[in-house]
Simulated assay, not measured.
Amino acid sequence: MFVFYTYLVFFAPFELRSKVIDLTVYVIVTLVLVSVAYVGYIFVKTPTLKPEEIYEILSKRRRGEA
């Protein structure tokens, strides 16, 4: 695959080379945007702790229970 891609990027006719580079950039940008959207989705869906739960966790740590 590496040899084939190298040929397409460096030694193929100009029109094909241009399309291969365009497709590569499109795929990379799409992967980055999907990754950012997924991380954002995970942040939104992660449940938050109530202040009472945080106080309970901290008091257990101070007492050495957890």
Score class of each variant (00 low, 15 high):
P13Q: 00
S59F: 07
A66N: 03
E52I: 07
Y5I: 13
M1H: 11
V27S: 00
F4R: 06
G64Q: 04
K60E: 14
E15W: 03
I57S: 00
L58P: 00
K50S: 15
L31E: 05
L16H: 10
L8F: 10
V3Y: 09
R61K: 15
K19V: 07
I28C: 04
V20W: 04
L58F: 08
V29F: 04
V20P: 01
Y5K: 05
S59P: 00
Y41D: 11
Y55D: 01
T6P: 05
R61A: 15
E65C: 03
G64H: 02
L58E: 12
Y26C: 13
F4S: 05
V32G: 01
Y26K: 13
V3G: 03
K60T: 05
L31M: 13
V36K: 08
Y26V: 14
V36E: 07
T46Y: 10
A37T: 11
Y5V: 13
K50V: 13
E56L: 10
F43A: 12
L33E: 04
S35C: 11
V9Y: 07
L8I: 04
Y55T: 02
T30C: 10
D22C: 07
F4Q: 09
A66E: 09
S18V: 03
E52Y: 12
L16Q: 13
G64K: 00
F2L: 09
F2W: 12
K50Y: 15
F43L: 12
V25C: 01
T6M: 11
L49I: 03
R63K: 15
Y38L: 15
V44L: 12
V3A: 10
F2S: 03
V29K: 04
V34W: 02
P47A: 12
T48C: 03
S18D: 13
M1V: 11
S35R: 02
A12S: 13
D22H: 04
K19I: 06
F43I: 06
L31Y: 01
V25T: 06
I21C: 10
T6H: 11
Y7M: 04
M1W: 14
I42C: 04
T24Q: 06
Y26D: 14
S18Q: 10
V9W: 02
Y26N: 12
R17S: 09
E15D: 15
K50R: 14
V44E: 02
R61I: 12
Y55F: 12
I28R: 00
F11A: 08
S35P: 05
M1I: 09
R61Q: 13
I57Q: 02
L33V: 09
G64L: 08
L23Y: 15
S35Y: 06
V39W: 02
P51W: 11
Y26R: 12
R63E: 13
P51E: 15
F2E: 07
L31A: 10
V39E: 02
R62L: 15
K60D: 11
I42F: 05
T24V: 08
T48H: 08
V9E: 10
I28V: 14
R17N: 09
